[in-house]
Amino acid sequence: MNDSISSDLIRGHIDTIILRVLMNSDNYGYEIIKAISLISNGLYELKEPSLYTSLKRLEKGNLIQSYWGDESQGGRRKYYKITKRGKEIYSKSVADWKVARDLISQLIERGHD
């Protein structure tokens, strides 16, 4: 787990990463962190403060909605569900990312020209 390298580059995409996890299914905070860790094969671990900040921002922007689960033990969990708008924004972010990825590669890797 090498946070120092990745976190700066990943920071701007945390919202999209969370949307991606919620595209699969509704989920709650800690499971979202786990899912992200799993998808990255343990290379990236989202920190709790960033998770909450991001969830708050996404909910404010109406990209996700929250509801309370009905667990009987261990306290009630707050689940998040992606909205229609969230799905649209997600697709757009993915498209944007592909363009940016190619462009940045072109700009910083030698041997493209």
């Binding site: 709650y28 905070g29 667990e71 261990g74 707050k78």
Partner: peptide, 17 residues
Amino acid sequence: DELKAEILSNLEAKKSD
């Protein structure tokens, strides 16, 4: 209270995990 409950339940989940 909601934020508190959310954080606590996530920490509990983390602990169990």
